[in-house]
Write a protein that binds this DNA or RNA. Structure first.
Length: 458
RNA sequence: GCGGAAUUGGUGAAGUGGUUAACACGCCGGAUUGUGGCUCCGGUAUGCAUGGGUUCGAUCCCCAUAUUUCGCCCCA
């Protein structure tokens, strides 16, 4: 038997419905924020990632899926979304578009050659946003608000927003220098990994798990103390816009990010759910004002974020959030004889064509087994075909909950089903999006729930 | 890249160096000759991840590989 590649997953069944639901919410949210969907290639020339993400980063040095194509070109499966989008921005000269800034979102698979563990796969899906062509702090706040709103729309509660500022290039360089000077005399008291980090990325020493309790770290210089006036002012503005939007956040001066291209605002959204593994960052992002220029475009101010859909679903499962996914059937058509079967095939098509979620029997099971099958599919109504009834152009319709049966004329069938299914919807006391509602207000399911009216909590 | 744990039918799993690999759920069939979800009866792994080795004999012991899982590093 051939098995799937390590760290990759088949998504199907109920799980697939969750993924589809999250994607649906993302699309409708982005439509309202007026971000355009962008789809770029899953592989790009290797050089793009080397220059874009940073030659020395772990992502590039040891985590990429590289291959040489038949034309001897060096290619890499994208390990993240931003580089490809910036390439597209430059290549398609979007900086010349009449409408600025360019607001884009993507939702697709990324690839990193890593050892899989909880919350980390080799193929994973990221939803992300990029705003190219504005340095306004208001944009920073808007971009941060998107994943926050998304997670709350999905019904996730244990979420923590952390922000920090690395400042502009000058501030960032000064801070880096200060950190190296600060740590250098004390390296023996730090762990092995931190010794490696000193030259490579001293900022990361700050959130080392091993040395977390070390006094040295607690008293280390803080990013914000090294921000120049302009960077400091900018950070204050971002925070005030976040306050304006009612976003709860925490300034975490130890928050740095691993990709080289970040400056000014950086942020992360953490799942603070009991039982979540160590990879608990649901979304992360920041400003990357130098990247477009690095990739041969004009100086352009940009900000973006990415979030891992897999991790979001992991968090939703852990919090046992009930998503409004459809897991039932409205009608199941049953038959035994060949003439009934023929009739069933066209009846099913007729019902589906008229908007009913309908299924039938395909494997030659007996009637008894068909009843069981209908139960497994959570069918609300059963239609039990009978040659005798068909002669009179009638079918037997059974409510699978009340067990009431009715002989219904075929001309009247659609109307009958419509009436009865509608009645059931009104009886519903719990909305399928997981909340109890009455019928006066919009619920926060994003308009995708099928509770029959959008509502407020009772 | 480094480390720990695991891998037995459709599922959850017991188990043993030696004829037929427990048990439960599910599934299929029957009791009930077209109305089930309760009950009862019967059926349901030629195989214990894969490849080597040790052995008279291996699902069980050893090695390797693959995959899963949990950490480190890193990241979403």
């Amino acid at each position: 038997m051939i098995s799937k590649p390590k760290g990759c997953y088949d998504i199907y069944g109920t799980n697939a419905k969750k993924w589809q639901y999250v994607s649906k919410i993302i699309d409708s949210l982005m439509e309202k924020y007026n971000y355009g969907y962008i789809r770029t290639p899953i592989f790009e020339s290797s050089e793009l990632f080397h220059r874009g993400i940073g030659e020395s980063t772990d992502v590039v040095t040891k985590e990429t899926y590289d291959f040489v194509d038949r034309g001897e070109r060096k290619m890499t499966l994208r390990p993240e979304g931003t580089a490809g989008i910036v390439r597209s921005y430059v290549e398609n000269k979007m900086y010349g578009d009449a409408i600025q800034p360019i607001k884009l979102y993507y939702n697709g698979t990324m690839y990193r050659y890593e050892r899989p563990q909880s919350g980390r796969d080799r193929e994973f899906t990221q939803f992300g946003v990029e705003v190219l062509g504005s340095n306004d702090p208001m944009v920073d706040a808007e971009v941060i608000s998107i994943p926050v709103i998304l997670l709350s729309m999905l019904g996730l509660k244990g979420v923590k927003v952390k922000i920090n500022s690395l400042g502009d290039k000058e501030s960032r360089d000064n801070y880096r220098k200060a950190l190296i000077e600060y740590f250098k005399p004390h390296m023996t008291s730090l762990c092995e990994d931190c010794n490696d980090r000193l030259e490579k990325n001293p900022l990361r020493i700050l959130d080392c798990k091993v040395d977390r309790e070390n006094e040295l770290l607690k008293n280390a210089p803080k990013t914000i103390d090294y921000l120049n006036e302009e960077s400091k002012k900018r950070f204050e503005e971002v925070k005030s816009y976040l306050d304006e939007l009612g976003i709860d956040y925490e300034v975490d001066t130890k928050l740095v990010r691993g990709l080289d291209y970040y400056n000014h605002t950086v942020f992360e959204i953490e799942a603070s759910v009991e039982g979540f593994g160590s990879n608990n960052v649901l979304a992360g992002g920041g400003r990357y004002n130098g990247l477009v220029n690095t990739l041969d475009g004009p100086e352009t101010s940009c900000i973006g974020f990415a979030c891992g859909i897999g991790r979001i679903i992991q968090a939703l499962d852990l919090e046992e959030v009930k998503l409004p996914i459809i897991e039932d059937l409205e009608v199941f058509v049953m038959y035994v004889s060949d003439t009934e079967k023929k009739y069933a095939s066209s009846l099913v098509q007729y019902l589906r064509g008229n908007g009913f979620r309908t299924d039938t029997e395909y494997t030659g099971r007996g009637l008894k087994a068909q009843f069981k099958q209908a139960d497994r599919l959570n069918s609300k109504y059963l239609i039990i075909l009978n040659d005798e009834d068909l002669k009179n152009d009638e079918v037997k319709v059974k409510n699978n909950k009340t067990k009431e049966e009715a002989l219904v004329s075929i001309d009247y069938l659609l109307y009958y089903l419509d009436e009865h299914l509608m009645d059931e919807d009104y009886d519903m006391d719990e909305c399928s999006c997981g909340h109890d509602h009455n019928h006066d207000h919009e619920c926060n399911c994003g308009g995708n729930c099928n509770c029959g009216g959008h509502n407020e909590e009772i």
